[in-house]
Amino acid sequence: MHFGHYISGFAHLGLLTGLFISPVFQKDRDPIEYSNVSLISQQEFIDLTATNISPVVSEEPSTLKPAEENDDKLNLKFNAESSVLKSEGPEVVLDEPLEPVIKQPQIEVANMQKPHEISEHLQPPVSEKLNSLPNVNNEANKLNKRSTVLTPTNTPQPEINFSQSLKSTAKTVDELDIVGDKKKASADNLELSLKPKSRPRYNPETNFEDKSEKQVIEANISNEIQSPALQKSLSNPLTETETDNLQSAIQACWLRDPGSLTEDVKLTIFISLDRNGRVNPNSIKVIEISGGDDDAQRVAFRRAKIAIISCGKNGYKLPPNKYESWREIEVVFDPTI
């Protein structure tokens, strides 16, 4: 199914290997410096050569003496306090420091709040939420304006007061966090993730200092390609029939409502499955959504989520030997077709 990807991947690998072998990444040669050249006279040349002094050759070679104990006072002494080796010797006074003193820029902490304070700020206390509710008496007054009609059978409509919301026993759907790009999905209870988070990542602990970068990269790429699971997956994708069976299993639980605005909503959901074909409920994320208003998108997501969970509650029937092919799935729900 992803054969083209594999071909392209190996082509890229070959290209990069070629780049490493070729001198493309070798350090550039020193640039050529140009300077002006002028002629000198014969006399100037004689004068110049006459000043050259031939070296004097001594009959006895000079011998090297070992340094005496106090000679030059050049000793290395371990400084326990600083944990570094410091030289102790004649004090050298310099007019200016050899190295410019680099001052650490002062960092001002700008009125940062503790995490729990931020949380409190974002989530107003329940009492504030209650205070922000509409005036129930006004609502009741509006409701009371129902008719009394001509006939004696007419009875005045009873008053109905909207009381406060009941205290929630659990985190509500409306309170779910939004993660990701609101432009793509602004429904306030969708869990969004533009990219699945479980894909392989670069290991930052890789030590590039110990080995050459080229070796490290080659080794890692080699390991990835030679991983048995991946090899198996690459050579053993789901067949068309197996994919169709999975589609049929999910759509059997996807409740559609042809008269509603959810019929305009197209969404793509990422899920991950365990080896038994069971969906990890926490993995379900919207990665793309379009059409409909916020309410319709929220309902469309819930319907899709229920379809995936309810039909997979006993595990989707998928070939265990191809787990790497189906451990992560993007399911597109498209009622607009």
Partner: peptide
């Protein structure tokens, strides 16, 4: 090089 997630499209429901 890691295989991309399997992608399926559902257009029919009940």
């Amino acid at each position: 090089v890691q295989s991309a997630p399997l992608r399926i499209t559902i257009t029919e429901g009940v």
